[in-house]
């Protein structure tokens, strides 16, 4: 299906129709003052059709929440465990291209070899409507450099690109075409000057951006060519807040904890990861990563080195959420810039 156009006044109609067909409509919403955060606006309304910046949390917060029940413990003494199905139909609206790219990576990870059913069931019941960027979402963002913005190349069901009078619409999947088919009257063919307008905005955004040479970066890390002082500095800065791993749209690590009372309860899984020394410490107390700087190095190496080996691309999408939440002012962007220099 070729590119389509939807007028500004029709997008709200589309959204209302989409809401009818889902259980949760996850869209950016203005919370306190300037905070923009994905929220379920199906009943509550208030979604931002177009917005600046990006949500504090990514769609990961719905597919792999900070804590979620992994299964139900019906009886401890009889060993009865039951799955908790999540059949909710979710439509994500206004997802930024960086987060779409993150979803592609997360899909490959969770659906590979051993399938992670709790993730898969939520992913498969979800529809993703991307909204390409027409300006950088934060001073620190570097999605263009990481080849993850300002427009998603794949991974979305629909992608909207704002132009003056409405949106250009790209269709990325069967789920996306179904939405178009069901709402035919709202869509039209775009005029050539619309496409030109969109292109101009993109050009403007991409100006001055230099794509990172991922392979070279990974190679340098692989050969341990980073100055030791870089890791030392990072080690002194990190105060183990865990904000980076909680907000990162491609962080997938977790731990489990049981919440039981009496003979029943649930097993939770919750966000966990590199910064903690306990993350790799074994029951007897020994650990393969005794130094704190190695914990953050592990985080950086996973994203920028090992995943390049595994997926051919880094699993950092340049969204800058980790940078904007780091109380140690650690910047993966500065790290990349310095190393790739």
């Amino acid at each position: 299906m070729g590119r389509l156009f939807i007028a500004k006044e029709d997008i709200q109609t589309l959204i209302e129709r989409l809401k009818e067909g889902c259980d949760e409509f996850i869209a950016p919403k203005k919370e306190h003052l300037s905070d923009v955060i994905f929220a379920d606006t199906k009943e509550a309304g208030g979604e931002l059709i177009d917005y600046e910046g990006n949500s504090v949390i990514s769609p990961r917060a719905f597919l792999l929440p900070q804590t979620e029940a992994l299964f139900e413990i019906k009886s401890i003494k009889d060993g009865k465990f039951f799955p908790i199905p999540d059949k909710k139909k979710r439509i994500f609206y206004g997802v930024r291209p960086c987060d779409i790219k993150a979803l592609i990576l997360m899909r490959s990870f969770f659906l590979d070899e051993f399938v992670d059913i709790p993730y898969k069931q939520k992913l498969e019941n979800s529809t993703f409507i991307a909204l390409s960027c027409n300006r950088l979402c934060s001073e620190e963002a570097f999605c263009c450099e990481m080849d993850a913005g300002p427009v998603a190349k794949e991974g979305y069901d629909l992608q909207l690109t704002a132009i003056g009078k409405g949106y250009l619409v790209d269709v990325g999947s069967e789920k996306g075409s179904r939405i178009i088919r069901n709402n035919k009257k709202l869509f039209a063919k775009p005029e050539p000057r619309d496409e030109k307008e969109a292109l101009e905005t993109l050009k403007c955004l991409a100006k001055g951006c230099k794509r990172i040479d991922f392979k070279k970066l990974a190679g340098m890390m692989n050969e341990d060519k980073i100055k030791p002082s870089v890791w030392d500095d990072i080690g002194l800065r990190c105060v183990v807040c865990s904000g980076c791993i909680t907000l990162c749209p491609t962080c997938s690590c977790f731990s489990i904890a049981d919440r039981v009372s009496g003979d029943s309860g649930i097993r939770l899984r919750y966000c966990d990861g590199c910064p903690y020394s306990g993350f790799t410490r074994m029951a007897g107390g020994s650990t393969p990563f005794p130094l704190h700087k190695d914990h953050i190095r592990r985080f950086f190496e996973h994203k920028l080195n090992y995943d390049v080996g595994r997926y051919g691309i880094p699993s950092c999408v340049g969204c800058a959420r980790c940078i904007n939440t780091c109380p140690g002012n650690i910047s993966i962007r500065k790290f990349i810039e310095e190393v790739a220099k």
Partner: peptide
């Protein structure tokens, strides 16, 4: 189920 920091 979680905490979301407020940038504002």
């Amino acid at each position: 189920i979680g905490v979301i920091p407020s940038r504002a």
